[in-house]
Amino acid sequence: MHIKRKTVLTVGVLALLATAAWALTRPAKTRLVASAAVPVRVMTVVEQDLPRYVTGIGSVLSLHSVVIRPQIDGILTRLLVKEGQRVNAGDLLATIDDRSIRASLDQARAQLGESQAQLQVAQVNLKRYKALSIDDGISKQTYDQQQALVNQLKATLQGNQAAIDAAQVQLSYTQIRSPVTGRVGIRNVDEGNFLRMSDAQGLFSVTQIDPIAIEFSLPQQMLPTLQGLIAASEPARVDAYMGADTEGEHSDLLGEGRLSLIDNQISGTTGTIRAKAEFPNSTQKLWPGQLVTIKVQTALDRNALAVPPGVVQRGLDSHFVYRVNGDKVEILPVQVVYQDSDRNILKGIQAGDVLVSDGQSRLKAGAQVEILKDPPQTIQTADARVQP
């Protein structure tokens, strides 16, 4: 009896253990089956032309900026322009008292008339003396003296004409005209003041606004690229923005210009090279002295296949991506042609391929995936930037 009871107890314990094991293992299997598909996010590869850019900080410069200064001493009699007014090259800006210069001009003209009359008389006498010298009516010495007088009066006549020309130049200085087309700056002198040529301040400045230039610096490593852009048949495009964000929704494009020149030397202290671009500026959004962000197009990749950086995975000796094929993924080796902080341009993929963009840490070749319901991502922006 004791042995039977012990056997029954043992069988019961074993049955309980079996039941408990079955109860514990069944939910685990269910969870394992349920978690077999790895949730991932995907994107679709799109083929498009992608320009490359380099960005930097630039300063807006006027192509022509002139400080208007007097070229003679005198009283400022009239100011014919207002501050901020647009003027054209040759427009009269101001006048200086010209009475003393006009008197000098009249005096020089009178002296010229006197010299002309004296020369006319001397030439008549010379002609007469020449005829008399043939018959020895006068001495050779008298004829030579008359010839010297004629030459002297001719030189005096030239001196009188030079004095007239000088007085006319001085008179032209009494009318101050704009040397360039541009905008008048803040006035420093009012009408009635006595102006001197030695005054360093000047009356005001005239600054050309349209077209305008932007000077900027780039790392010296960009020199070969810039030289290629300068040598190209079509100048490289340069965009100017207000602020550092050139891609955001609220980025303010100030103007579109063209690369015009690069400096003839690299700065030894900063390791940068200066370059300049010229911009049409009819809207006058660009203003001399303004700091802007510039973006230079350095290349254009036609029919490029680009993906966000997170799509590309790095193996031991190569790069690869996970491509979705049905409900599973496969490993696809790729070559990175170009990369930056925004995107990688790849070889080895095709337009329309669906690639895993998030969730790669749990994947391996042939793994089953569950694509999340978010809409597939596509490359919407057709540019790539290189930060200097």
Rank of each mutant, 00 (worst) to 15 (best):
residue 338 Y to L: 15
residue 255 G to R: 00
residue 245 D to A: 02
residue 141 Q to Y: 04
residue 199 D to M: 11
residue 67 V to C: 08
residue 31 R to F: 13
residue 38 V to S: 07
residue 375 P to I: 11
residue 330 E to K: 02
residue 185 G to H: 00
residue 333 P to Q: 09
residue 114 E to G: 01
residue 236 A to C: 02
residue 259 L to A: 01
residue 178 S to L: 12
residue 233 S to N: 12
residue 245 D to F: 12
residue 274 R to A: 14
residue 255 G to Q: 05
residue 360 Q to E: 07
residue 118 Q to D: 14
residue 306 A to P: 10
residue 267 S to V: 01
residue 39 P to Q: 05
residue 120 Q to T: 15
residue 37 A to I: 01
residue 16 L to A: 14
residue 372 L to W: 04
residue 47 E to D: 08
residue 327 D to K: 10
residue 203 L to D: 06
residue 224 P to N: 06
residue 186 I to T: 15
residue 1 M to D: 08
residue 80 L to T: 12
residue 86 R to C: 03
residue 177 R to M: 10
residue 318 S to I: 00
residue 247 E to N: 14
residue 124 V to L: 12
residue 285 K to P: 02
residue 273 I to R: 11
residue 228 G to V: 06
residue 161 Q to M: 11
residue 201 Q to W: 06
residue 272 T to P: 02
residue 304 A to K: 11
residue 66 V to F: 12
residue 222 M to S: 13
residue 333 P to S: 15
residue 141 Q to R: 11
residue 342 D to L: 15
residue 232 A to L: 05
residue 152 Q to A: 12
residue 20 A to V: 09
residue 14 L to P: 01
residue 235 P to G: 08
residue 67 V to E: 01
residue 307 V to D: 02
residue 100 S to L: 11
residue 61 L to D: 15
residue 285 K to S: 11
residue 82 K to H: 13
residue 86 R to L: 14
residue 128 R to W: 01
residue 108 A to E: 07
residue 92 L to P: 03
residue 116 Q to G: 11
residue 241 Y to H: 08
residue 350 Q to I: 01
residue 305 L to E: 02
